[in-house]
């Protein structure tokens, strides 16, 4: 059962990722991106990582994709139907990406030594165990990310302000 569900959502994620790249309208790309995020969130649920799945939907689907749409609408000039232009030199890109994919896929599939848990991970309350880890073992990266976000916010404001005053 879960294998079927996995493939449904995995195919959904990959197919919409394809849509992100090929769609000529950048707003469509943004919506495809949201769909990809939903597919990935479903995969997290299958892995019993319910908290991560919720965060994925809230932050990525809810905020990031919508932010992309807003940014497009506020900055776009010209016709939205041709907002994401095609790259003519896709031949070499396809060749390199294909080669890389084959190499990585071969390496991953032929390796038998992956650390796979003996049984499924069945902690019920993942949010509580995550929060404990964040404030004990992972305190330094947690606090450092807080400072990172503050700095990124300040930087965004400063850079945007400069652009506005130029005009």
């Amino acid at each position: 059962m879960s294998t079927v569900v996995f493939f449904i959502f995995a195919i959904l994620a990959v197919a919409s990722a394809w849509g992100v790249v090929t769609s000529k309208n950048i707003v469509h790309s943004a919506f495809f991106l949201a769909l990809t995020f939903v597919g990935v969130a479903a995969l997290y649920v299958l892995l019993n990582a319910d908290f991560i799945a919720a965060v994925q939907i809230l932050v990525y689907t809810g905020a990031v994709s919508i932010m992309v749409v807003f940014a497009v609408m506020l900055t776009l000039r010209g016709d939205v139907r041709e907002s994401s232009e095609e790259n003519r030199k896709w031949g070499w890109g396809l060749f390199t990406a294909g080669l890389l994919f084959v190499v990585i896929a071969l390496v991953i599939l032929t390796n038998t030594d992956w650390r796979i848990l003996a049984g499924p991970w069945t902690v019920q309350n993942t949010a509580a165990s995550l929060s404990k880890l964040l404030l004990t073992s992972y305190m330094i990266p947690f606090e450092a990310s807080a400072i990172l976000l503050t700095i990124a916010l300040i930087g965004a404001v400063i850079l945007a302000k400069g652009v506005k005053e130029d005009k």
Binding site: Y138, I140, P141, A144, S145, I147, L148, I151, A152, G155, A156, I158, L159, G162, E165, D166
Partner: peptide, 24 residues
């Protein structure tokens, strides 16, 4: 590696801002 990665991003993201910092 997780701590290392967060440190790396803190440094790099700050540099993204600083590199484009010159007004006009």
């Amino acid at each position: 590696l997780l701590t290392f990665y967060v440190g790396l991003e803190l440094m790099t993201i700050t540099f993204y801002i600083l590199v484009g910092y010159l007004p006009h």
